[in-house]
Design a binder for these strands. Structure first.
Length: 534
RNA sequence: CGCGGGGUAGAGCAGUGGCAGCUCGUCAGGCUCAUAACCUGAAGGUCGUUGGUUCGAAUCCAACCCCCGCAACCA
């Protein structure tokens, strides 16, 4: 699993200008911050890279040139507004003027905020640049365009064939794009921040971030292979048709992963059927002459709304992981955003849900069962797992849950997976209640032992079942159950950057009788509702 | 205008042709091992509107209404 910070966005550029530092510096700083946040959330990657590396630039150039040679890139001249004082071409929204429709004086080059009419910058009356307040001039510029139209038939064929397992909205949204017909897209910009254009005479322009950032998935994989000292290893992931690629992204980026990136991959893969290109444009460590793998699934989420609106940093309606981490546990944050993820439609974020998730689901359901079982062993059996035999009902529940939750995770149905997890908690609490070991303890110690033995097995199953969601809690539980020398893929990933035995981690071994437990601690802390946020 | 998603109990959501479900909240009861946690039961819905197809529709079809997103030189 690889990812990285997309560093060449316009927001970085403008924010850097505001702070008076170079965009490169700011990109570096935010990448560091994001990496730390991920670490705090136990989001572990084989490689979490950035798009400012030399490696990335080299690979982007390679891809660009292959696309160019295959005829998917062409140049075209156009006239755009240019701010002579600042010496820069102006994005549409940096040109303002009077709306030709309604006469509003604050119309932007892309849209009039008063009447909602979509505009072109040249429609504006008395245009001015928001960068210098001077009147911009029309100036000719030249750009490269990606000929998406030419790729449309292949793309359509691919989507029709491979989107059946996608989330409905992702599939329909992507098919809608194709149905409407794809237009060529500008891939270069008049800017000095970004990946250079690898063509003579194009100094001073850079590649547009949208075409270049997605290539980061490939360059991060290649970088990873080099880091672990096996420069060819990335091909195992990119050229084996059995290897399925999942792209976990925010909804707004869907088209870049279901249309643009596949288009780039399809076009690039023509390299493998062209002798001269194959010899000329090898990727680092490349030896297999086979096409690159296209996405298997793009499970993107819809929007999490805050007071009915899209979250936005500008107006204080954003929730970011860092401020949540100051107050709440990693486990709660991870579990909440899976449990209440807007997988199929927008969803309103409510603090009440956040607290309910903690107090009712993590604490009262899962945590309580774990705690009542472990403290029972502690107080009645001196911290040693009593003797017993696994009951059929318990065994079946455990097997069913492993199967069901595993199935949901494979299908990227994470909300359903979390629901199944809570059902397992319900079963366990009910089992404990029905068996009433606090009664049998006085009347029939053998039956009591058996109940507790079975409860311990349920706790242990829970330990593994929660691991994908809340690995931190799972590890704490492992220590409480005093399990030693167990293979932990996350640990191997953190220390070596690889996972060697993935297929063995979704299984269960019984905790034998007479096992001595470790220290019992509260796994999830209850949150006082009075401290609710505004 | 166009494209896509959604409109189901007080709240949040599942449910794509066969007696309307889940979680929380509310009310009543049980238990006391457990973080006042756990278990049982009850109340609560004309499934956005109108029409159609069908023995049967939340589910299929048509039209309409409302909310959201996309539609950008924002990635």
């Amino acid at each position: 699993m690889v990812s990285g910070s997309d560093s060449h966005g316009t927001p970085i550029l403008f924010k850097a200008e505001k702070l008076g530092i170079s965009p490169e510096e700011l990109a570096k700083k935010s990448h560091k911050e994001i990496s730390q946040t991920f670490k705090k959330l136990s989001l572990i990657y084989e490689n979490y890279s950035t798009t400012t590396t030399k490696n990335h630039e080299e690979i982007v150039h390679n891809v660009f040139l292959v696309l160019k040679e295959r005829g998917y890139l062409y140049t075209q001249k156009s006239k755009q507004y240019f701010d002579e004082k600042v010496g820069r071409f102006l994005p549409d929204r940096y040109v303002r003027g009077i709306c030709p429709e309604c006469g509003a004086t604050n119309a932007r080059g892309d849209e009039c905020p008063e009447c909602g009419k979509f505009l072109k910058p040249e429609d504006l009356i008395d245009p001015y640049s928001t960068l210098s307040d001077t009147k911009p001039v029309f100036k000719e510029t030249e750009h490269f365009y990606l000929d998406l139209k030419k790729l449309e038939p292949q793309l359509k064929k691919w989507i029709d064939k491979s989107s059946d397992n996608w989330r409905k909205w992702v599939r329909e949204f992507s098919k809608g794009w194709i149905r409407e017909g794809l237009e060529p897209r500008e891939v270069t910009r008049d800017m000095n921040f970004g990946i250079s254009v690898p063509v003579e005479g194009w100094e001073g322009k850079v590649l547009y971030v949208w075409i270049e950032a997605v290539i980061g998935y490939l360059s991060a994989s290649i970088e990873w292979a080099q880091k672990i000292g096996k420069p060819q290893e990335w091909e195992e992931f990119w050229k084996d048709p059995k290897c399925k690629h999942f792209y976990f992204i925010a909804g707004g980026n869907t088209s870049f992963h279901t249309i643009i990136w596949p288009a780039e991959l399809l076009a690039y893969s023509e390299k493998y059927t062209d002798d001269s290109l194959w010899n000329k444009y090898k990727l680092p460590g490349e030896s297999k002459r086979e096409p690159l793998t296209l996405p298997y699934d793009v499970p993107s989420n819809k929007m999490l709304l805050f007071k009915g609106k899209k979250m936005s940093k500008g107006d204080g309606t954003s929730l970011d992981a860092d401020s949540l981490l100051e107050k709440y546990s990693e486990d709660l944050i991870r579990f909440f955003f899976v449990r209440y993820a807007p997988e199929n439609h927008d969803r309103e974020f409510e603090w009440k849900d956040f607290l309910d998730c903690n107090n009712n689901e993590l604490v009262a359901n899962l945590g309580n069962f774990i705690n009542r079982t472990l403290t029972f062993v502690q107080s009645k059996f001196g911290g040693t797992v009593p003797e017993g035999e696994i009951e059929k009902e318990v065994q079946e529940q455990i097997e069913t849950s492993f199967k069901e939750i595993g199935k949901h995770i494979e299908r990227c149905e994470f909300v359903k997976a979390s629901e199944a997890l809570l059902k397992f908690g319900d079963f366990s609490n009910k089992y404990f209640n029905d068996k009433a070991p606090w009664v049998s303890y006085k009347e029939n110690i053998k039956e009591c032992s058996n109940t507790i033995y079975n409860s311990i097995q349920l706790v242990n199953a829970l330990r593994t079942l929660i691991k994908p969601f809340i690995p931190n809690a799972s590890n704490k539980l492992r220590d409480m159950l005093n399990i030693k020398n167990e293979y932990d893929p996350n640990e191997e990933l953190t220390t070596k950057g690889v996972v060697s035995q993935l297929e063995n981690s979704w299984y269960l071994e019984e905790i034998p009788s007479l096992t001595k437990l470790g220290d019992i601690k509260i796994l999830f802390e209850k949150i006082d509702r009075e401290e609710e946020r505004p």
